[in-house]
Amino acid sequence: MKESSRSVLGYKKMKIPYVIQSKTENPKGLTIMLPGIGYTVKSPLFHFSSSAFLNKEYDVLHVNYPYYSTDYEDFSFDELTSALIKDVSAVLHEVLDQTNYNSYYVLGKSFGTIAIPTVLKLLPINDTKAVWLTPRLIDAPVFETIRTCIQDGLCIIGDKDPFYDVEKMNQILLNSSIECIIPPGANHALEVDNDILTSIDIVKSVVKRIDDFITLKNGVLNNEL
């Protein structure tokens, strides 16, 4: 596997590192991965999802924004959100200026889902799909984008997640482009408290569905996990 590490200057000229992984000279497309603040690209769902895309001959872009560092400790949540959108846009503009892909996926978790609406606006509508892992449904742009987008997508959130909202999920379920997967008892980490084996099963099922999502022509089955 080839791996290229680079960086761009993002919000307030701070350095934002990113990595592009590839297993083929002729990739089918690019997957943009947007982790949470505490849930990095080395965490299980990102690690295994990255492998799934690489095995399907997609390049994988990890945006490794360092919001856990002391450089950001005085940022309010609103400013951190502004930084996220600015930083992800800067990375994506640089990558897209230097490459030419025919297909795109964007996968975000929690805080990273805040940037997905912006990313979807930068990519071709008909050639882009999205995976929303534990999305922050309390953020209006996130909810409205999932509710109304025409790009095929997966929305995966447990019913014990603090961002889970029955009324909002019922509205999202009306969008035929989105498949909603709601693991029962799963928290924000997509784990069940005090139940290791069930938590492992959830991770396995989610990764399998993402793997299927890459393969299916239209992506969406509209079945729950």
Results as ranks from 00 to 15, higher is better:
112 G>Q: 04
191 E>T: 11
34 L>M: 06
93 H>S: 13
210 I>M: 15
157 I>E: 13
48 F>I: 01
127 D>K: 15
88 V>C: 03
154 L>A: 09
98 Q>V: 09
14 M>C: 07
14 M>L: 09
190 L>V: 13
117 P>A: 14
22 S>C: 00
4 S>V: 09
86 K>W: 08
73 E>C: 14
173 L>I: 14
171 Q>E: 15
160 K>Y: 12
74 D>R: 14
202 I>T: 01
177 S>W: 07
223 N>C: 11
33 M>A: 12
58 Y>Q: 06
88 V>G: 05
173 L>F: 14
115 A>C: 02
73 E>Q: 07
218 N>A: 14
9 L>A: 11
131 V>D: 04
98 Q>S: 15
60 V>H: 07
220 V>F: 08
71 D>H: 09
108 G>S: 10
162 P>C: 05
39 Y>E: 01
30 L>I: 10
69 S>L: 08
158 G>P: 10
11 Y>S: 02
141 P>R: 02
87 D>I: 03
121 K>G: 13
96 L>H: 12
101 Y>A: 02
115 A>P: 10
94 E>K: 07
165 D>F: 07
17 P>C: 02
215 T>E: 15
159 D>L: 00
58 Y>H: 05
155 C>G: 00
204 K>D: 15
195 D>G: 12
58 Y>R: 02
134 T>L: 06
14 M>P: 02
216 L>E: 08
212 D>Y: 12
28 K>A: 03
90 A>W: 15
197 L>P: 08
118 T>G: 11
49 S>V: 05
198 T>L: 12
29 G>F: 03
222 N>C: 14
51 S>Y: 11
52 A>W: 00
50 S>L: 07
193 D>A: 13
111 F>V: 07
4 S>T: 13
79 E>V: 10
52 A>D: 01
176 S>M: 00
80 L>M: 14
44 P>E: 04
169 M>F: 14
6 R>P: 05
123 L>D: 06
54 L>A: 06
176 S>D: 15
188 H>A: 04
186 A>D: 02
148 T>R: 13
203 V>D: 12
135 P>V: 04
214 I>W: 11
101 Y>Q: 06
34 L>K: 08
136 R>A: 15
23 K>A: 06
155 C>S: 01
106 V>K: 03
201 D>T: 09
108 G>Y: 02
154 L>C: 04
58 Y>S: 00
150 I>F: 15
26 N>W: 11
108 G>W: 08
185 G>S: 03
10 G>W: 01
144 E>G: 05
83 A>H: 06
78 D>V: 11
40 T>C: 15
